[in-house]
Amino acid sequence: MKPAAFEYCRPDTLEEALAALAEFADDAAVMSGGLSLGALLNTRLVQPAAVIDINRITGLDRIEVTGSMLHTGPLVRQADALNSPLIGEALPLLAAALPNVGHYQTRSRGTLAGSVAHADPSAEIPLCLAVLGGEVELASSRGRRRVGAGDFIQGALETGREGDEMLAGLLWPKSQSGDGVAFIEVSERHGDFAIAAAAAVARRDGDALRYTLGLGGIEDRARLTSGSAPAAASAFAELAEQAAGDLARQLDPMQDRRASAAYRRHLAGHLGAQALEQALVRAGMEGGT
């Protein structure tokens, strides 16, 4: 299990990285933490002409507030995000999801952006980005553009990234104080990719609680539903069950060795209801009396 030969490029600046990407067009792989790419290279499932190692580029590891958004650079490690007070405060959903991402060891070098770029249907980070309505920032020597998380991921391991582009960052709409969030997943073992994951956010808007529920691991990308609930409701269980059930019924779940379509659909409804109810209750409490 040794990688096929490739040209190794280690740019010192983003411009150099983008130039190299342009040079190799569709045939280069960008390496950040290497947690997903390393295994693909070693098994020779991917054999790029070049590997562009962005780890030496300074400034890509920043977590910055830009207006109502939080920008995380392409080298923000999952462990640093988990330990970041800023993310704990502004992105409680991501903070709740991160302990489920891989293991203590893999989070140490694994990046937020790398997980999004890899686009595994069961991955937690892209699910959170989608539920929060975040964006992916793409850079190439042609310029920069932003794509909504929902549009960026186009299928299992498929994204809207052009061959000469790299992820220049993720843009996360900040949560507001009083927002309710919840993240729940089921996996065969601790630390495995989720068989099904549910992420929910809810926010008070006048007399209503506006919510978004996302389900990961069911289809080839995260699926979302949004709606609102009366903030004064005494309980949200029924509404959550209804909303999650409606979404689950619309889905065409994946079927693999780990789980049947029926089980995934069931978990989608079950976990979705739990997550949504928790988010609504939390938002209701916070925003209430």
Binding site: Y8, M31, G34, L35, G38, N42, D53, A79, Q105, R109
Partner: peptide
């Protein structure tokens, strides 16, 4: 194969020598 690389834990099988 876990080692500590610049204060971070790294799977050395998923890390390039160049790194």
């Amino acid at each position: 194969c876990t080692v500590i690389l610049d204060s971070r834990l790294a799977r050395s099988c998923g890390t390039l020598a160049m790194q």
